[in-house]
């Protein structure tokens, strides 16, 4: 899903950079409120580790049938654990490091942040929140329903991000939009299964080992 340099047209590139920067500024401001709490700074090392986990999981490609491979994007996963605004900042920083290695373009950083951070992190988080409204009517424990909602939300968010990515590529005109969207959605319908399984398992594992790290329970309505 990492868009390389030279694929998007200049207008799309600039617009997505502006959107990404605006969202990052809002995220920075929103996190300021969270970090006014004295105890919150103890979270920082864990946020670093979570970001490194996302980097490592984005680095390892698992095989997908049809001669392609997939890797975790992790936007929704970070959104569920740390909140949607922290997810945008974490994904942006991970993408910056990856671009230093040539994985994803530097001019396309705005677009990649939009697709993986904004769609994956913010939209994915609210999909999970909506799913939990339904799951809250069941007898399921939060340790079960949050991971299940995360898995489904991650899947929907990754396919949606692929759809948006197809539109962005199509606008540039290098590839016809209908073909770009169809190809992106087709492959990510398969890749999303891995995203869903890994995200759900990590949230389940965090609930089992260090549940206090999931600081979004109130926002998600499961506290």
């Amino acid at each position: 899903m990492h868009i390389p340099d030279g694929l998007l047209d200049p207008v799309t590139t600039v617009i997505l950079w502006i959107v990404a920067v605006l969202v990052l500024i809002i995220a920075f401001w929103r996190l300021n409120i969270l970090f006014q709490d004295e105890e919150s700074e103890r979270l920082i090392p864990y946020i670093g580790v979570l970001a490194a986990t996302i980097f490592a999981f984005q680095f390892v490609n698992y095989p997908v049938p049809g001669g392609t491979s997939g890797h975790l994007v992790g936007g929704t996963l970070v959104g569920v654990i740390l909140g949607p605004w922290a997810a945008v900042i974490v994904l942006f920083m991970v993408l910056v490091v990856q671009s230093l290695f040539g994985d994803g373009g530097i001019t396309a950083l705005g677009a990649n942040t939009f697709n993986m951070g904004v769609i994956g992190g913010i939209v994915g988080f609210y999909i999970v929140k909506a799913l939990l409204l339904i799951f809250n009517k069941t007898e399921l424990k939060k340790e079960i329903k949050v991971p299940i909602a995360t898995a489904i939300g991650s899947y929907i968010a990754i396919v949606l991000a692929a759809f948006i990515c197809g539109i962005e590529i199509g606008i540039g005109g290098i590839i016809p939009m209908d073909i770009a969207i169809a190809a992106m959605v087709f492959w990510h319908v398969l890749i999303g299964i891995g995203e869903a399984i890994i995200s759900g398992l990590i949230v389940w594992f965090v609930y089992k080992t260090k549940p206090e790290l999931i600081i979004t329970e109130k926002m998600l309505g499961v506290a």
């Binding site: 698992y62 491979s69 373009g105 530097i106 190809a183 992106m184 492959w187």
Partner: peptide
């Protein structure tokens, strides 16, 4: 770990070619 292209790369290779993808200007 798979060395195969990921979803976006696969889509671009299918539509264009691997040489085209590697030749994108940065």
């Amino acid at each position: 770990l798979s060395e195969d292209p990921d979803g976006l790369e696969r889509a671009l290779i299918d539509i264009r070619s691997e040489e085209w993808l590697e030749g994108l200007a940065s």
